[in-house]
Write a protein that binds this DNA or RNA. Structure first.
Lengths: 227, 227, 227, 227
DNA sequence: AATGAATGAGCGTTCATTCAT
DNA sequence: GATGAATGAACGCTCATTCAT
């Protein structure tokens, strides 16, 4: 299952019968490849155009600027990721099940899509604008989704209550990102991401579980949580 | 305690009352500020020069290129961080103690140095060169240090043995990085990093602990929680 | 007859009434003018662009660098000169006729093209690269052509055999170059080049002629020079 | 016999007893070396300073600018050359003798001084300023000296009168220059310059000689001569 | 006089973007 | 819509020159 499959949202431009793949998607796919190999700033619009098999100017018929190309890339991919996560989130009764599924889903999506992993983990941070403006929208949404899963499980007494859901959301995001980053940049060890996801989930879930048998402890600490 | 304190390497000194520090360090400090505000690519060498109070050309007496300026920044700061981490690592007998200290040390260092945090977490990924070449040296060193702490504790029976130390190292790095990133970009909530560090350590250490029959250990750690 | 006439190589054409010639040629012509007035190093790419009526960047669509612009100038012009010289060389039965025609042709070509003369004589020597690398190709070709004319005439018993054809080729090149140089830099005396060419040919051909009937003179001076 | 030997003219700065070679000369010598290897524009003042064993700034105590360094180089060397030529000129009764000696002297001086030859033949043309302003002084002086030798011999009936002394002076200069150029850039064949000088003199003197007894040939060409 | 660190004007080149076809 | 030649603003870097020591 790949995040870049299909077309989830937006502009149904040129849905002419005679033209199968639309240009917009071809350009985005080319951009993923080029951004992944060279990074956002070192990537040339001309090269993306070439990789997409279109003329330089054509890109500007679909995207306002090179910056917007990157932004759209995230929008498209992350909106789809958020949807998947939300869908998944609904399928599991326990917080542990939800969190494990979400962790495994995210790394699973990247398995087989190194380029996209690299773009998301590396290029997300390349444009200050991107990070500070766009990120404020979708990234916050993402973090809130993760935090809500933790918070729900805390309220249900399933997770320890002495940690901030938002801090945990950031830590989990970061852990996934760190694993994806080193994976994207390093050796392509097959199945590596799945195993890593599983281990990460094991540790996090165990670490987050409300204390054991008597359970008194977590409750004792809970009141002071704030962040 | 700041990572940017002290002087690492050569060049003449002046130390007139009105002008603190030597040129190289002044330039590095200016670069941190500018890179943090604008990102590496959007930062102009001229602006860094101006911020450092030197002429444009002066920068090139100390650094071969704009790229090398960024690289040197990491070298200087990360080499110092590695030293601190190694020192710290030696002071604690248990793996749990070590790991907690390392986590708290890293986030503690950034407290009060938002700019540096932003440069490290955001700009580290801006230059393909930086990430793929330089990173292969120091970053690997860093990851190996973290992994060895985990591995040692596993061998001692203190940590669960069913997770890869290297995966954990990456996850821990990522978690710290994610927390630092959101902190650097978001609200400056005082003490936030310390609390986050403590909570992250709580969860990770509990999650990593070799599952004890009675679960007594968790209780032993609890008192240090503050956030 | 001008060396800069005609079109040597590719690129689309336009030929609207108001805009004469294609960009590449317009740029070359502008470069000749600017290089002649200021010399290669003191010439600014921006000025050439302005003189050619194109944007700065346009120059780089046709030439890889400022250096290559100069190189291409020589290639274009000298290749054409070589062709003319070879054509001319074929039309005359005697060595004297050939040499005279070649001398007069070369200086004749420059008549009316002071700029080009100046570029060739002055700027040829400005770029070490140009002189040492490019020159090794075309310039050697040129010298060999001249030397072969001398050598042929020597073999035919027409020219004295006690001088090296290669030394003569260099001397003739130099003499033409010296005349062109002073002409390009000095007063534009109309017809001056033609007259100078004629006189130079007179002296050289007489000096090169195999010793006449009585033959005593040459032998007296030149016992057995070979070099 | 080398043109760069001794100190002929100018500024007796710092004739302190304790310091043998004076800096000015050391700088000039270093400049010759560096200019010869790299050309004027590609030569860095810092490199000349290093080659001379002085600090960058020291050069500006002796020369107003990099340009003036080149100019001074020519002044020093060419003034000396002019003196030698004038001295030599006085020693020979016949025009042929004078001219031959001057030709051989000039190329002889360069034998063993490739660097200087390259500087004079190549670098003379690098600075428009140099060529157009300085050249107008010394170079004209040089050409007039050569022309006067020819003119004198013409008046004496020794040289043919149907050629312009000034054209001949330029041609001779050029021929010498062309030979020196190719020699400086090409193979260092020992003795090559001497042999070339001798052959060039043979051809030129024969070519310039007043028509011999029968004289028919020269007369046939004479009509077209004017300058 | 001598030094060499510092200066900063200046330029070649790039590349996102435009627009005539 | 599609093209790609043309544009020109923008910037990293160099290096001749200065000047405090």
């Amino acid at each position: 299952m790949a995040v870049s499959e299909g077309r989830a949202s937006g502009r149904p431009r040129d849905e002419r019968a005679s033209r199968g793949g639309d240009k917009r998607e071809r350009i985005l796919r080319a951009a993923v490849k080029v951004f992944a190999r060279k990074g956002f700033y070192a990537s040339r619009v001309a090269e993306i155009a070439k990789a997409a098999g279109v003329a330089d100017g054509t890109i500007y018929l679909y995207f306002k600027s090179k910056d917007e190309l990157l932004t759209s890339l995230f929008e498209d991919r992350i909106v789809r990721l958020l949807q998947l996560l939300r869908d998944e989130s609904g399928k599991h009764p326990s917080g542990a099940g939800r969190l494990r599924q979400m962790i495994e889903l995210q790394l699973g999506l990247l398995e087989g899509e190194r380029d996209l992993a690299e773009v998301i983990t590396v290029n997300l941070r390349q444009s200050s604008k991107l990070l500070k403006q766009f990120a404020t929208r979708r990234f916050t949404e993402y973090l809130e989704l993760m935090a809500s899963v933790v918070a729900d499980a805390q309220r249900a007494g399933e997770f320890r209550a002495d940690v901030s859901p938002r801090v945990m959301a950031r830590a989990i995001f970061g852990a996934l990102d760190g694993i994806a980053l080193t994976w994207a940049l390093g050796n392509p060890e097959p199945g590596g991401l799945k195993r890593a996801a599983s281990q990460l989930a094991d540790v996090l879930l165990h670490g987050l579980s409300a204390s054991l048998p008597s359970g008194a402890e977590a409750g004792a600490r809970a009141p002071s949580v704030s962040g």
